[in-house]
Design a binder for these strands. Sequence first.
DNA 1: TGAGTTTGTGCCGCAACTAAACAAACTGCG
DNA 2: CGCAGTTTGTTTAGTTGCGGCACAAACTCA
Lengths: 404, 404
Amino acid sequence: MNGKATTTRTKLERGRSALGPALELVHTGRAPTRAVLTSELGVTRATAGAVAAELEALGLIRVDSSPGSAAGSQGRPSHRLSVLETGPVVLAAQVHADGFRAALVGLGGRIVATSPGCVAVMADPAQVLGEVVEAGAGLLRESGLRCVGAGLAVPSAVAEPEGTALNPLHIAWPAGSPVRDIFAACVRAAGITGPAFTGNDVNLTALAEHRHGAGRGAQHLLCVATGHRGVGGALVLDGRLHSGSSGLALEVGHLTVNPEGRPCHCGGRGCLDVETDPLAFLTTARREPGPEESLLKQAGNLLRAEYEDPAVRNAAEALIDRLGLGLAGLVNILNPDRIILGGLHRDLLEADPERLRAVVADRSLWGRSGSVPILPCTLAHNSLVGAAELAWQPVLDDPLGALA
Amino acid sequence: MNGKATTTRTKLERGRSALGPALELVHTGRAPTRAVLTSELGVTRATAGAVAAELEALGLIRVDSSPGSAAGSQGRPSHRLSVLETGPVVLAAQVHADGFRAALVGLGGRIVATSPGCVAVMADPAQVLGEVVEAGAGLLRESGLRCVGAGLAVPSAVAEPEGTALNPLHIAWPAGSPVRDIFAACVRAAGITGPAFTGNDVNLTALAEHRHGAGRGAQHLLCVATGHRGVGGALVLDGRLHSGSSGLALEVGHLTVNPEGRPCHCGGRGCLDVETDPLAFLTTARREPGPEESLLKQAGNLLRAEYEDPAVRNAAEALIDRLGLGLAGLVNILNPDRIILGGLHRDLLEADPERLRAVVADRSLWGRSGSVPILPCTLAHNSLVGAAELAWQPVLDDPLGALA
DNA sequence: TGAGTTTGTGCCGCAACTAAACAAACTGCG
DNA sequence: CGCAGTTTGTTTAGTTGCGGCACAAACTCA
């Protein structure tokens, strides 16, 4: 098929091959000491020592030789490993229906600095992303830290490899906007170093939760979440985001969950999108929906504050049943070992976890798969942290190469 | 989480690391010469030469130093690489509603010997698998070839890691039969060397088609197929079967494709399973279904022979529309870059490819994903070859270790 | 026949790793 | 306090997979 198009990787390009995995272990908190790093990497103590020393020399991690507080076990206490607080950061940002937020995020998903939630005129993506990057650049100047990349989360499917936003329905951007290129241009224009990445917000939420939150340790993590409108999904397989062949996987909004339900713009009826989002909850509960940018909060508050109201409770149970049906369908297709829910779905889970689990168990064919754990997302600003993960990925894959 | 449970891989265990990938390239026909092996592996000619020589020394491949017929291009002609005809084989078998078949399969998916299709009393899995392995052992004795493993395809989901058949509905086995253990016991009892594996037949069809058939080169391959009853699915991601966290992924039979459709034993209505299988086709076309073991053939023959009959044509179009709806749902979730269809679905595709493609494009949200290629399965005995792939996998992963 | 092109092979050396022996830092016990 | 036992870090030597290079081999084309 290809003659010699494949990259002939030279010796100079490949660094110490265990460097990336080691950094990822420290990054995700799975290697608190050099001893567990050794066993986790499956290498000798000598190698693990050399790798840790090299990561320390790169200014990425800290190796505490004198911990003082040993944890009771006998034997020589191991050196503690941790992310270096004063190490490099990435610029992370998220755009959503009611504004944007920029932040600096270090290794370990640590938010170093964050801008206040900003409201912006949403018409023109170039203008909005210009403001976003401007805010991030300000944080960067204040901090004086080194920046090694930038990541952006948008509430839209992002087509690969073009990097275009296909359905930014709930922000007023034109469909097909080349958000990745626009963001990258803004980043370069602001003089920020490192590559720039863009991804779907639910995908990035899943990635963040997998590395630092409720998804830790899951091998097949399914994430389903609402924003103000619509439903998104994401799948993290063996630690890597699965976004399909062109970035459009897990567009779960059009699973049929209520054959007699309301019509959907996709041409079908009773899609997950229009049956389980905040607007659906409010109308089912016979409440007047407020402005689009506050639907999620309105629905969440209603659910928590007035759950004893029969109309609210019935609406919640109806949505839980439909959500459960959708999740069961996804379980039959994807067979995940954990499900995490965000947005209104998270609130619905917390309102009546037993009901949701029962529906999923009942309608997913396999009893054993029916017992798949369903958990709420736990991370604050998870899509922001996920955007940062995107920017950190090259460093995690090849620390030497990415920092050179 | 674990102290030192992880495998400390010693130097002796890891062979030449490019050995596995190289064998896989020859196995799948993507490395016809040593030159393309070099570029495909991304190593130097020296390394590729050493690797090829080692595989030849292992008795797995043949390196033709004197090809004679060069293909017109200038420069020194490259050594031709091919699978060694007299190399080791695996024992492959499939069990289906109307009997079983055993075969010996070499590298490259080459069927070396095959038993005639046998009819067996289906009641007891141990008895059936005993006959299956008996037939295979006979072939093995006749051939005198070395056997390095065994693989079995069953028409049921196989739970991992238990290896139990969860829904062998269309063969008269009890649900939950430990088929993997039974098969492994039979293999050992027959004195056949090497590990024994068991998998779902549609999964294995997908694997076989990916390596040797219509799925070659696809990175996200979705396969959907019918047997005599019901519908199965499979996904091959980057060359590896994706069977979910417990082997139960791609149980696509219960996607809703016809809200007003017939009731399904799952509790829903209009599931893919009961709306697009051979029985559904025959009843929709108002034909008297014959015995269960011949539904697929009966439906296929009817479709090909009497497509001009309005009842047949209408039934076909109805099934195509519902199948398209199901495929569109899967496209939205999985975003594959190729879809292949087997069983009656293959026949439906060939009866009216445009209609099916139009429905999928119309109902999968993204126009560009809607243009995903939909192809018929091409391989003869594909689930048999897939069962062989399962048995070959350890050799492909680590030739030195597996043959030692 | 000779220039040009592509491929195979032998040799050197690097770098990442293992293995093994030793040193260091702790616990626990008498 | 001292000593055994345990676990971890460090040093050194040795192995090895593979890149880089130079050269030989086998073809095409003029």
